[in-house]
Design a protein around this nucleic acid. Structure first.
Lengths: 216, 216
DNA sequence: CAACTAGCTGACCACAGGGTCAACAAGTTA
DNA sequence: TAACTTGTTGACCCTGTGGTCAGCTAGTTG
C-alpha cells in the first residue's frame, strides 16, 4: 500500500474506526446504565455523551438491548475470573484475603460495572438469567467445592459454603452498590482510598475469624 | 344517621374508600417498582394490576414521582425502627443476633420494599438524598455510638463501627436483593424458609466470632 | 330533599424515545 | 480510477407514557 497522506487530520483505517467507536460507546453506555439503569437510560443520552449522532450508536448496536447485553457480558467475565483465583491447595488465610481485597478493589475501580450487575440481579436478571444458570453457577459450585475441601482439611469451621460465599459477595459488593450512600452517612462527598482499605481489612478479619481460620 | 340500605353491594363511607384505595395502590406500586424499577414501571401497569383505571391512580397520587416517594418513605421507616432496637446496655451477643435475624426476616417478608430501597441507593438515591442525610444518618451515628460503647466495655474487638454496620447491612440485605439469583445458583426456584434461617445463623456466627464477641 | 363535596373515569394531548431509512461520505481493493 | 464496502447522519415514524380535564356518579350534610 502506498503512503496516503491527506491535508486534513490523520487518515484512519476502517478497522480502527470500528474498534475505537465500539469501545467509546461501550464505555459511555456503562456509565449511563450504572447511573440511570436500563430503562432510565436513553440512546440519545449515550449519543450526546459520546458526541456521536444517535443513528451512529444504532449503526454499531442494532438495538438498545443488544448494547446493554454486551455491557453485561463484559462485566460477568470479570466476576468469573476473580473467583477462579481461589483453589483448594491455597490456604484460606491467603486465598480469602486475596479474594476479598480483589473484590473490594473491583468495587472501587469498576464501580459502574459492579452497579449494573447488581441492578440486573436486583430486578430478577431478565437479561442474564441463562448466563447465571450456566457460567456463573459452574464457577459458584467450584468455589463452594473449594470451601468444602478447606473444611475437610480443618482449615476452617464447618459452615455452609453457599451462604458464606453470599456473605463475601454482598459485603464486598456493597462498596460499589452503596458506596455513595456510605459516603453520605460518613459525611463525605465520596469514599476515599483509605475507606476501601479499611473496609477490605475489616471484612477480611471478620470473615477469617468468623470462619475459624487460624491467623498467623 | 338513618339506616341506608341499597340493593347493590355494601355501601361504603368515603373515608373507608379512600383508605382502602390508597392502601391497594401503594401495595401494588411496591410490587411493580421492586420488579421493574422506577423508570420501568408504568402507571398503566399499576392500574391494571390494581384493577383500577389509570385516572384513578392519578386522582390519589398527583404524579408518579409522588407515588414512588410515598412508597420509599414507608420503607425507610421500617429500616429506622429496626435499628433503634440496639442499645448500649444490651450485650452485643444478643443485640447483634437479634438485629441480624430481624433484618434477614425483613428481607424475606418485605423483599419488595427492601429491593426498592436498594435500587434507589444503587442509583445515587435521587429521591431519598435528603432523608438519608438527616433521618438515616442520625440513626446511623447513634448505632455506631452503641458499637463504640460495646468496644469500650471490651464486649467486642476494636473495629470500625461504620464499616461493621455496612457489613451487617449488606450481608443481610443480600437475602432480599440477591435472593432470586441465590436460588438460581442453588438450583431452586425460590429461597426456602430454611435458607433464610441458615443464612441468618451463619451471618450471626461469623459476625459475632469475627468481632470477638464472647459466646456463651 | 337540596346543595355540596369526594370519588371516578374515558377521551384527549404532548412529547419523548426506540428504531428505520435513504442518501451521502469516507475508506478499500482490483 | 472505478466499483465496492464500510461508516455516517438527518429526517422521519410510531408507539407508549405521564398527565389533564370535563363531566359524571356516589356519598355527605344541613
Amino acid at each position: 500500500m502506498k503512503e496516503n497522506k491527506k491535508v486534513s487530520t490523520t487518515r484512519r483505517k476502517s478497522a480502527d474506526i470500528r474498534k475505537d467507536n465500539l469501545q467509546l460507546i461501550l464505555s459511555v453506555a456503562e456509565q449511563r446504565f450504572a447511573e440511570y439503569g436500563y430503562n432510565g437510560t436513553t440512546i440519545s443520552s449515550i449519543a450526546d455523551q459520546a458526541q456521536l449522532p444517535k443513528s451512529n450508536i444504532l449503526y454499531y448496536f442494532k438495538t438498545k438491548e443488544v448494547l446493554y447485553k454486551e455491557v453485561l457480558i463484559q462485566i460477568l467475565k470479570i466476576w468469573l475470573v476473580d473467583m477462579e483465583g481461589m483453589s483448594a491447595d491455597q490456604h484460606p488465610r491467603e486465598a480469602l484475603r486475596h479474594y476479598i481485597i480483589l473484590k473490594v478493589k473491583q468495587s472501587k475501580d469498576h464501580s459502574n460495572a459492579s452497579r449494573i450487575f447488581a441492578s440486573e440481579l436486583l430486578h430478577g436478571a431478565p437479561f442474564l438469567r441463562e448466563k447465571l444458570q450456566t457460567d456463573l453457577k459452574d464457577q459458584f459450585m467450584k468455589t463452594c467445592q473449594v470451601f468444602r475441601e478447606w473444611i475437610a482439611k480443618q482449615w476452617m469451621n464447618p459452615i455452609s459454603p453457599e451462604h458464606l460465599l453470599f456473605m463475601i459477595w454482598s459485603s464486598t459488593q456493597a462498596y460499589a452498590d452503596y458506596g455513595l450512600q456510605s459516603s453520605i452517612l460518613m459525611g463525605k462527598t465520596e469514599l476515599e482510598e483509605s475507606d476501601f482499605e479499611t473496609g477490605a481489612e475489616l471484612i477480611t478479619q471478620v470473615i477469617l475469624k468468623g470462619c475459624g481460620v487460624k491467623l498467623l
